[in-house]
């Protein structure tokens, strides 16, 4: 099995809630179709890592290969359109509170990723809506939907264009605890059905483990002499782990 995502000695400095933080990823690999939860307290750099993995923010240094493409080279060459195209075709994103466009219906919101990727597929859209139990809400706008329904629309949108990787940032942060379990289960089930790899950032590793996710916890280190706190996500290569 080949690695969909492969990071080596990636670093990124960012400002945390209080002190400056340095995010470090010495080793990180994710296989195609694999699901994984990234756990860590808030401010530990989970979102920053997800942004990097979503090709939305450049790492400061290191090696980063996604779907066989050298992402670092694209960033160094400022090939923003190439990154956008890769994002459009291969990645699905579930933002914290859904991130739906208020002026589009649920259906149009889901179709957005298909349109941008140039992969219209009404049948798949319909199938996802039925699987997620929102078929009756397709004609409604986000304002008319419940929080849980909005989250499911966002999941459908993240999967509609058949991405290779789905990234979800605290998808359960704004929903009821009971709903949170359901959302995590839904995400896992749909990604598995679509063959997409899944990365979920969460501050609640127990819930993720209950939902059947392998969990990668981050190691945080107090500020060193230079006053920079470090947050380390380290995952041994698949071959070694196997």
């Amino acid at each position: 099995m080949t690695a969909l995502l492969s990071l080596r000695d990636v670093r990124k400095a960012y400002r945390g809630d209080a002190a400056p933080f340095a995010l470090e990823v010495p080793r990180f690999e994710l296989a195609e179709g694999e699901a994984l939860a990234l756990a860590g307290p808030s401010g530990s750099g989970k979102s920053t890592l997800l942004m990097m993995l979503a090709l939305a923010a450049p790492p400061d240094a290191g090696g980063f290969v996604f779907a066989g493409t050298d992402i670092m080279r694209l960033w160094r060459g400022a090939r923003r359109d190439a990154l956008a195209a890769l994002r459009a075709r291969r990645i699905g994103v579930v933002p914290q509170t859904g991130g739906l466009l208020s002026y589009l219906t649920a259906e149009a919101n889901i179709a957005l990723t298909q349109r941008i990727a140039g992969r219209r597929d009404a049948a798949r859209l319909r199938m996802l809506a039925e699987e997620l139990g929102i078929a009756a809400q397709l004609g409604r706008r986000p304002a008319e939907l419940s929080v849980g329904q909005r989250q499911r629309v966002a999941i459908a949108r993240a999967l509609a264009h058949r991405p290779a990787l789905v990234l979800a940032d605290e998808p359960t942060a704004s929903v009821h605890p009971e709903l949170a379990d359901a959302v995590l289960a839904l995400l896992r089930r749909e990604c598995a059905a679509s063959g997409a790899a899944l990365l979920v950032a969460t501050h609640d590793p127990d819930r993720a483990a209950r939902a059947g996710y392998p969990v990668l916890a981050c190691a945080t280190h107090a500020p060193d002499a230079s006053g920079v706190a470090r947050s380390v996500f380290d995952r041994p290569p698949l071959a070694e782990a196997a």
């Binding site: 359109d81 890769l86 991130g99």
Partner: peptide, 15 residues
């Protein structure tokens, strides 16, 4: 801004 950022995240090109 938020909507535009979202569209950018979904892979919309700059143009």
């Amino acid at each position: 801004r938020r909507d535009l950022a979202l569209l950018a995240l979904l892979g919309l090109r700059r143009r």
